[in-house]
Design a protein around this nucleic acid. Structure first.
Lengths: 226, 226
DNA sequence: ACGCCTGATTGATCTGAATCAAAGCCAGCG
DNA sequence: CGCTGGCTTTGATTCAGATCAATCAGGCGT
């Protein structure tokens, strides 16, 4: 738990205090909602196990996936501002989260400065990541976007001790497309193209990265072929 | 100051404590940098006066504007995570900011819970706004993007006591384009189109919104003309 | 085993925005 | 003043990705 939820250099006592905060665990089945847009915010959720997406849906029905989240990540940060959740959080596979009552977290972060600092860093990192996505959406073309996306997943799997070159996508092409600002057909074509070039092997949702270096090339410069 | 930097229901004593944090003011001339990517993070900056943009630039020279910022807004939140600034902050007109040493802010936010809460809300709102931009970049077409952008500015000017229907853009078409994920020509055409429809009047960087209701229509549904 | 349904692939065509190109406008400055 | 350079507008053309459409593969329940 300590490792996942809010790691940091905490001493024995601090870890114990923190343990008290993380009230209880909650399971969310595949397809189930952890929370919904508009519901009252009281807690953050640290993912212990599983895979979720967050998405906002517009009045006219269009939905935009704002992120995919895996073990160890913190959900609900967007809701602090209005005390209402601003997006839906949906499990893409059976998941388990631990609930962190936000008021309590603030309370004990007054006692443990390193915890407070860590929490601030987590929020800040969220902002940095969103800026990265904005860059992607604002200036990359389809293939670059997909390459960036796959490398991002790859790195996150690696950090968690899984293979960086062989993984299973929990989301559909449509969800990937929504996240990347593309239509599902375009996502599918981009997959096929990367496969044709032997950079990856695609078997439905199973992805194998054959040449990570070339995939990285795809990310930065599509047009720079000297 | 109290109103701008970190408003909240603070009592006399708290305001005084806070006053001590906001160490000194700094002026940034038009075109000048408040901070640069990679520079060490120590302080947040609250804008007292002026107008700035933040932007990240990729290895290959492309730049992406991540935001435009006006009086009362807080800059530098992205840098908390790595303690290095992840973007450039450039003044688009002569500006003045007050520097808020972050360590001090954390320190006194331990003493003033409402200040801590307020700070968390500010960070959270930043995340929510970024999600809004992601939605825009991921699923809107040019005209919708520009309408959304203008209405966002309009609202922010209104809040600050300026006209919501008559304002001056500090940024170039290129910067707007970068922010909206469009090329400058497309931005220009979108302006012209809105003008042709008598929804706005454009005189270079002076914008007059003639029909705010119709502009709002443009934002949501481009194709719904019953 | 069968049929159904959801999701994925692939092809053909269309379209919105990018790109290329040419003026035009304005502010600042010699 | 007139020239220069940055910013903007507008037009013509191209192209990446959206849309439309058909087919296919896999998982699930009966």
């Amino acid at each position: 738990m300590r490792e996942l939820c809010l790691p940091v250099g905490l001493n024995e006592h601090e870890i114990q205090v923190l343990g008290d905060v993380v009230s209880h665990k909650r399971k969310v089945q595949r397809g189930g909602y952890l929370y919904r847009t508009g519901s009252k915010f009281q807690s953050l959720f640290a993912i212990r196990r599983g895979f979720l997406k967050t998405c906002i849906l517009e009045q006219d029905g269009r939905q935009q996936v704002t992120g995919f989240h895996m073990t160890g990540e913190l959900l609900g940060l967007d809701a602090i501002s209005t005390e209402l959740h601003t997006c839906d959080a949906v499990a893409l596979e059976d998941s388990e989260v631990c609930e962190i009552p936000f008021a309590k977290l603030e309370e004990i972060s007054r006692i443990i400065p390193s915890l407070m600092r860590h929490f601030h860093k987590i929020m800040s990192r969220e902002i940095v990541q969103d800026h990265g996505v904005m860059l992607l959406l604002g200036s990359m073309k389809a293939e670059e976007r997909l390459a960036t996306f796959l490398l991002n997943l790859s790195r996150r799997f690696l950090i968690r001790g899984y293979s960086e070159s062989n993984f299973y996508l929990r989301m559909t092409r449509e969800e990937i497309g929504s996240y990347l600002g593309l239509k599902l057909e375009t996502v599918s074509r981009a997959f096929s193209k990367l496969q044709d070039e032997n950079i990856i092997t695609v078997d439905n949702k199973h992805i194998k990265i054959n040449d990570i270096a070339r995939l990285k090339m795809k990310m930065g410069n599509s047009t720079c072929v000297p």
